[in-house]
């Protein structure tokens, strides 16, 4: 037999052996292609081939080697796949069983509202004043009332029942005193004062579903040379749309606060307002008070009301949270029932 015939025979024998073999693929590779393998042995016969035939025989030899190598590789891959498949089957579990628990803490719902307000106003270039020095929760009567244009016998003091510590020191009833404390320190050569002041406030109230002796306010104020009531309207519209949604509208109604003149109550639409909507179909809810800062207030803080104008507003995170999430009892915010706190776990809204 010629070498070519031997090679061809080896090829077909090898194909058969590989295809039918259940045995160790590595052993098969050694016996076929190894240094002492069958192909190597046959190719030793190359030296007896005529020089002019060597090229052709060599090609056949390479073809045999390639075919065997390929087949072996395929076989090996198939075997590995089968092994992997067997492993996967054996490792299959019930993926509907509960996952391991990872406790994730939530910011308090009131904190979330305050954070939203804070983010909004930071974006508009406001400062946040909430430190113990410029925004103390225990205040003087002077800053809480008198500087806010509420002298001792002012009728509007009836609107606010106050926890006094001494006749001159009290738990602040509003975050408004932060206005005065900020104004005193502001350097107008660096631009207008734009600030918000979130924090706790206190009123001498009996706690029930709608009253709490402790609640939160976010005071806001802008003081500059050309600050208008239209700016106030635009500012309030933007924060209300951030909190309640882009399609909500606001309206302003006359009101009275001693520290602003003009003063307004602001309502936000409970429903989304579309251009074709009839006015009577919009449901309005009262959400905050605002106004142009009273000249007396500016003057008491050393600001010339003829040069500067200012607006101020007071936002109520407790009320917003009640409206936004349908919370029907303000006391829930301060009981810290874990079942309540963990409901407000949506991030990135």
């Amino acid at each position: 037999m010629s070498l070519i015939e031997d090679l061809t025979a080896l090829k077909s024998a090898a194909v058969k052996r590989i295809n039918t073999s259940g045995a160790d693929i590595e052993a098969l590779r050694v016996s076929l292609l190894g240094k002492k393998g069958e192909l190597t042995a046959l190719l030793k016969g190359m030296k007896d081939v005529l020089p002019e035939d060597r090229r052709a025989v060599g090609e056949i030899g390479n073809d045999v080697r390639q075919t065997i190598t390929q087949l072996l590789a395929q076989k090996k891959a198939a075997e590995e796949t089968a092994k992997m498949n067997a492993q996967l089957v054996s490792e299959t579990i019930d993926v509907t069983l509960p996952g391991s628990v990872h406790r994730v803490g939530q910011p308090h719902v009131l904190q979330q509202i305050i954070d939203e307000i804070e983010q909004h106003f930071l974006g508009l270039g406001f400062e946040v004043i909430d430190d113990t020095i410029d925004s103390p929760e225990v205040e003087t009567d002077e800053y809480n009332f008198e500087r806010e244009n509420l002298p001792k016998d002012h009728p509007a003091r009836d609107m606010q029942d106050t926890f006094y510590i001494t006749p001159e020191i009290l738990l602040r009833t509003q975050t408004s005193p932060v206005q005065s404390r900020s104004l005193e320190k502001h350097d107008f050569s660096k631009g207008p004062l734009k600030m918000i002041a979130p924090g706790k406030v206190y009123r001498r109230d009996t706690d029930d579903a709608t009253h709490s002796h402790q609640f939160h306010q976010v005071e806001g104020m802008v003081v500059g040379e050309n600050i208008t009531m239209a700016d106030l309207k635009g500012t309030l519209l933007s924060i209300m749309q951030t909190l309640f949604g882009e399609k909500h509208q606001i309206r302003m109604r006359p009101s009275y606060f001693p520290f602003t003149e003009p003063s307004v109550e602001v309502d936000v639409s409970w429903n989304e307002v579309t251009p074709d909507m009839k006015p009577e179909d919009i449901e309005w809810i009262e959400v905050l008070g605002a106004g142009m800062t009273h000249p007396n207030v500016l003057r008491m803080d050393g600001i010339d009301p003829n040069k500067y104008s200012a607006f101020a507003f007071g936002l109520g995170p407790d009320r917003f949270a009640m409206l936004k999430y349908g919370v029907d009892d303000i006391r829930q915010f301060y009981l810290n029932d874990v079942r309540f706190l963990s409901q407000f776990n949506r991030k990135g809204n």
Binding site: F121, G125, F126, G191, P192, M229, D231, K233, S238
Partner: peptide
């Protein structure tokens, strides 16, 4: 108040 324009304060920008 419905007839008031809607604007935002303008002037020197302040960092928030």
């Amino acid at each position: 108040y419905d007839n008031l324009p809607v604007t935002l304060p303008y002037g020197p920008t302040t960092p928030g």
